[in-house]
Write a protein that binds this DNA or RNA. Structure first.
Length: 581
RNA sequence: GCCUCAGUAGCUCAGUUGGAUAGAGCAACCGCCUUCUAAGCGGUAGGUCGGGGGUUCGAACCCCUCCUGGGGUACCA
């Protein structure tokens, strides 16, 4: 778990600090100045490999010209035994450092020793994370948003785990409450229509009108005939809804599995009701004085909880009034608990019963109004939802083909389901495309995703991997196996493109860390394109086969390290890295 | 109305949390295969970073304000 960019940055920091200390001791600069300096990698390599803004940031406090400070520091900077071969003053007072062989060599040797683990970091070491994602309503087929959420959640979980967290993946199954009632009534109507005729039974106005309900009712009828025609309504409802769920839930599991998505647990909402945990949680809120009764229903004082938080965050009463905060119903007048009550109980379970340090939920942007309320409810229970609960809101997916918005499946004429999508688009393309920045609205171009050419970024990356594999195979056939790093003299790698490729390889650890920090695994997508591009450029300019032994070995090792990183990163986002294309 | 996300090249997006001349991919145009996979590489062209103010050595990024688009604002889940 060695992070070469971090190591280089730390060294820039130490070198700069030491030089400043020395200068201050000589009395040439005021001592004890702390500056908010940043260490970065300049966009243009002409400005060095690493740069620090220390002189710019500290100049004011030192009452000196930044370039003057820079001059004093560079004169006293000792680069021996460091990764750097030179330091230069540039522009208004940047200190630009140039990397030497030592760093490049160490970078490749880390890839070699860490192998399949290369890219891991320890930012979240020892933390227990849960990612809850998809959690689609089990009353019907999954849609595009679920596909995006599935890919995003799975990759995010992966990225967090590569950053050291102990990650748990969960699907929350809403198998209780109002929509299950609706589900049962809809199935019932279709079932009775099969027996008595379409016109003899009225379909509920707010029922589920989809064809999947008809199909389920038909299946049920084929298995049970008119056995449930004359029984108690409740028995019929219960039987029908559990029949429907027993059919739909396994279907969701297999659909998600086709995308390579698996869960540690499918958590059933009904279990929270049956164990009395929902009732207990609502009672707890009541004990703490956060509820009241009105019109026969039990309400949570959401507006009061949120207003208190906003005041603490420094908002004025006027700002708060503008928000027009509303309270929420926990238990309806008919005695049933709301979805919100169950959700509060569920999240209490995540924190209190199972002890997660951090819970991340991936929701569609349409649930945005729910975020503050759920966090507030957690805070009301003393569970610190503000800190420990993070909601990633992902924007909607717009399907596009040839520039036209697609709403229906070509084949079935119905709304496009996940199954349809996978029948049309390969898994690799789906994983890659849906792994986009969560909070931006995305267009999924069906035409592009199936293209097997350079327009499709998935193939661009996969091609780089396959190219290397073939190369390694051909060279092995000629007796050139990939050498050990210790057997190779990497100082022969002097071309700018070779150096650029090694720097790109080193950047992987940082991208994984940023993806975990931002909850945005699309960092890896962009990284893969950059790495593939760096390789293709190198490949085009530097020959391997037929070069003299020393150069051949060094370049062969570099190619193999690139292959390893491409493979690791592709696996991370759930795409395959083919050995030939 | 209020909340929220977004607005950067013709299109899809980056921009390392305030750094140097704003970058990629695709599309357009011009080149590069008797030599390791041309599913590749090089080059040209393309910009008022939505508009306007402000903060400072320095702003696409921070603050104010306005404009445009998506989503939300249930005793639904």
């Amino acid at each position: 778990m060695i992070h070469m960019i971090q190591k280089a940055k730390e060294q820039v920091q130490t070198l700069t600090d030491a030089a400043y200390q020395k200068t201050a001791e000589e009395g040439l600069l005021p001592a004890g100045v702390t500056a908010k300096a940043t260490i970065e990698i300049p966009k243009d390599v002409a400005n060095g490999d690493y740069t620090t803004t220390f002189c710019l940031a500290a100049a004011k406090a030192m009452r000196k010209n930044p370039r003057e400070v820079a001059k004093l520091l560079t004169e006293r900077m000792d680069l021996s035994d460091s990764y750097f071969t030179s330091v230069a003053i540039a522009g208004p007072g940047f200190l630009n450092f140039r990397l030497g062989d030592k760093w490049y060599k160490e970078t490749l040797s880390v890839v070699e020793t860490e192998g399949a683990d290369y890219g891991k970091n320890d930012m979240l070491q020892g933390k227990k994370y849960m990612v809850e994602f998809v959690s689609a309503n089990p009353t019907g087929p999954m849609h595009m948003g679920n596909a995006r959420g599935g890919v995003l959640g799975d990759t995010l979980a992966q990225v967090l785990s590569w950053s050291g967290a102990d990650v748990w993946r969960e699907f929350y199954v809403n198998d209780a409450g109002n929509q299950i009632e609706k589900f049962a009534k809809s199935l019932e109507a279709r079932y009775l229509q099969i027996i008595k005729g379409e016109d003899a039974v009225e379909f509920p106005e707010d029922g589920y009108h989809g064809d999947d309900i008809r199909e389920l009712a038909q299946l049920f009828y084929e298995e049970n005939g008119d056995k449930y025609l004359n029984c108690e309504e409740k028995e019929r409802h219960d039987t029908l809804s559990s029949f429907g769920l027993n059919h739909n839930i396994p279907k969701m599991k297999t659909d998600l599995a086709r995308y390579g998505i698996r869960y540690d647990r499918w958590f059933f909402e009904s279990s929270l009701h049956e164990s009395g945990f929902v009732a207990d949680t609502v009672n707890k809120l009541t004990e703490r004085g956060f509820t009241y009764e009105k019109d026969g229903a039990l309400w949570l004082r959401t507006s009061q909880i949120l207003a208190a938080q906003l005041r603490a965050a420094g908002k004025t009463q006027e700002d708060i009034d503008k928000l027009d905060l509303k309270d929420d119903v926990l238990r309806r007048a008919n005695g049933f608990y709301t979805y919100f009550a169950a959700d509060i109980a569920y999240h209490r379970n995540k924190f209190e019963v199972r002890g997660f340090d951090k819970v991340i939920n991936i929701w569609g942007a349409d649930h945005h109004g729910h975020v503050a309320r759920l966090k507030g409810a957690m805070d009301a229970l003393g569970l610190n939802g503000t800190e420990k609960l993070d909601i990633v809101l992902m924007q909607l997916v717009k399907l596009v083909r040839d520039g036209e918005v697609v709403r229906m499946s070509k084949r079935t004429g119905k709304a496009i389901s996940l199954t349809d999508l996978l029948d049309e688009i390969p898994v690799d393309a789906c994983r890659y495309f849906f792994n986009a920045k969560p909070e931006t609205q995305m267009e999924f171009d069906l035409g592009l995703a199936v293209r097997e050419d350079s327009e499709n970024p998935v193939y661009y990356v996969q091609y780089a991997h396959a190219r290397i594999c073939t190369l390694l195979k051909n060279l092995a056939a000629e007796g050139h196996a990939v050498p050990k790093g210790s057997e190779v003299d990497l100082s022969v790698l002097t071309d700018d493109l070779e150096k650029a490729l090694i720097k790109q390889i080193a950047a992987y650890c940082e991208e994984v860390r940023l993806a975990a920090r931002d909850y945005d695994p699309s960092h890896i997508n962009r990284y893969l394109i950059d790495l593939a591009a760096a390789f293709h450029k190198f490949y085009n300019a530097c020959r391997i086969k037929g070069e003299e032994e020393k150069i051949l070995s060094a370049r062969l090792l570099l190619a193999d390290c690139t292959r390893r990183v491409l493979e690791n990163a592709m696996k991370l986002i759930g795409c395959s890295a083919p050995e030939k294309m």
